[in-house]
Simulated scan of single mutants.
Amino acid sequence: MNFAEQKKAAKAFLSRWRGRGDEKQDCQSFWTDLVVNVLGIRYASESIRFEKTVDLGKDAAGRSHTGFIDAYIPDTKVLIEQKGAKIDLRKPALQSDGSELTPYQQAKRYADRMTNDQRPRWIIVSNFQEIIVYDLNASLDVPQVEMKLEDLETEAYRLEFIVDQEKVLAAHQLKVSLEAGELVGKLYDALEKQYEQPMSQAAYQSLNKLCVRLVFCLYAEDSGLFGTKTQFHDYLANRGKAGVGRINTALRDLFRILNTKPEDRDPYEDEDLAIFPYVNGGLFADSHILIPPFTQEAYDLLVNRASEGFDWSEISPTIFGSVFESTLNAETRRQGGMHYTSVENIHKVIDPLFLDELKAAFEALKKSVRGGNNT
């Protein structure tokens, strides 16, 4: 999101929140709206924890007290204390234990009761119309940012520290990739039961190839490689009207088309097949793989859950590739299910081998270009 886009988004946000804001009812929607639509961070709901409890210990009378942090963001160590639209953020208020604290002091008390690994770096207090930011690494009790909601159009960038976009994206991709692996595992199991038992080596090879092809089609559909984001789904749903058991025939026809160049296709091919593109590389070249009849379970997993109910364009190819490989390995799955190699561990291997050197060369190239040397 560039500055102009952010300014426009902030203006729209201001129109939604000007003069309103209930401490209990609107906290979650306010901060989710701000982070997603103004700061441009998708999947905010996966990175912000609302109503996080904190043990405040016992008062003088020996009574235990529990506090509720309005919002907490672990990745960036941000603690948010939200007040209602009419609350003065600089005025002390009576607490449940009898003490009088400003919103910042209340938040600081929460922070002091948290474990070292969770203790915040930043404290934000807000009443929907004003946002005040304190950096606990700097001077205590001195705000680093004081912003009226009316100024958000030009000053939204000052809040970009709230969420680490790369960490949010990585966490979301991990979550989605593991969900995708689980879906493929369930589809694999449903199809495996349809092969003649005991399964031959050729049958297992066919099942693996079938799953690879199905995953390609699911990803191609959602990433725009096919004509529309529902093309694979619509084709299977239309063919499934004649009976889900015949989906295997529909897949054979589709795989044949995907392996045929446009100039080599029958000019009278069915329209719902003719719209699919040619896919080179040999993925669909083997026309002899065994595809068993589909059950309703397998059909629902493929058409309704994997295609219609899931966005394959959001997966991490690195993580999913590792999960997918273990999904296709029957022995690995019997020994404990799916496994994946984390991005961090992958980088531990590839960085010293070649990536560090490439990054250094790239940085040197950028410096030479900035210095006027474009060779």
Rank of each mutant, 00 (worst) to 15 (best):
Met1Trp: 08
Phe3Met: 08
Gln6Phe: 02
Lys7Ala: 15
Lys7Ser: 15
Ala9Tyr: 01
Ala10Phe: 03
Phe13Leu: 08
Leu14Arg: 09
Trp17Leu: 12
Gly19Ser: 07
Lys24Ser: 14
Gln25Asp: 13
Asp26Val: 02
Gln28Pro: 07
Phe30Pro: 00
Trp31Phe: 15
Trp31Asp: 04
Thr32Gly: 05
Leu34Arg: 06
Leu39Trp: 00
Gly40Phe: 05
Gly40Thr: 04
Ile41Val: 14
Ile41Asp: 01
Ala44Thr: 01
Glu51Leu: 11
Lys52Ile: 04
Val54Cys: 02
Lys58Trp: 13
Asp59Glu: 11
Ala60Tyr: 13
Gly67Gln: 03
Asp75Tyr: 12
Ile80Val: 09
Glu81Arg: 02
Lys83Val: 04
Ile87Leu: 12
Ile87Ser: 02
Leu89Gly: 08
Gln95Asp: 02
Leu101Arg: 03
Gln106Asn: 02
Tyr110His: 08
Asp112Gln: 13
Arg113Asn: 15
Arg113Pro: 08
Asn116Ile: 12
Arg121His: 09
Glu130Cys: 07
Val133Tyr: 01
Asn137Gln: 15
Ala138Ser: 15
Ala138Val: 12
Leu140Pro: 00
Leu140Met: 11
Asp141Tyr: 12
Val142Phe: 09
Gln144Cys: 10
Asp151His: 10
Asp151Phe: 05
Phe161Gly: 01
Val168Ala: 07
Val168Arg: 00
Gln173Asp: 05
Val176Glu: 07
Gly181Leu: 08
Asp189Asn: 12
Glu192Cys: 07
Gln194Lys: 10
Gln194Thr: 10
Glu196Ile: 13
Gln197Thr: 12
Gln197Arg: 14
Pro198Cys: 06
Gln201Asp: 15
Ala203Thr: 09
Asn208His: 15
Glu221Ile: 03
Asp222Val: 03
Leu225Val: 14
Gly227Pro: 00
Thr228Tyr: 07
Thr230Ala: 05
Asn238Lys: 14
Asn238Arg: 13
Gly240Lys: 04
Ala242Leu: 10
Gly243Thr: 02
Gly243Gln: 09
Val244Ile: 05
Val244Leu: 05
Val244Glu: 01
Gly245Trp: 00
Ile247Glu: 02
Ala250Pro: 02
Arg256Asn: 11
Leu258Met: 13
Asn259Phe: 05
Thr260Glu: 10
Thr260Lys: 05
Lys261Val: 09
Ala274Ser: 11
Tyr278Ser: 03
Val279Ala: 02
Val279Phe: 04
Gly281Cys: 07
Leu283Pro: 00
Ala285Glu: 14
Asp286Tyr: 06
Ser287Val: 10
His288Val: 12
Leu290Ser: 11
Ile291Thr: 09
Pro293Cys: 09
Asp300Glu: 14
Asn304Gly: 09
Arg305Asp: 11
Ser307Phe: 03
Glu308Asp: 08
Asp311Ile: 04
Ser316Phe: 03
Thr318Met: 10
Val323Gln: 01
Val323Ser: 01
Glu325Met: 07
Asn329Trp: 04
Arg334Lys: 13
Met338Tyr: 09
His339Arg: 14
Thr341Cys: 12
Thr341Asn: 07
Asn345Asp: 15
Val349Leu: 15
Ile350Gly: 05
Leu353Val: 15
Glu357Val: 11
Leu358His: 05
Ala361Pro: 03
Ala361Met: 15
Lys367Arg: 12
Gly371Glu: 14
Gly371Met: 09
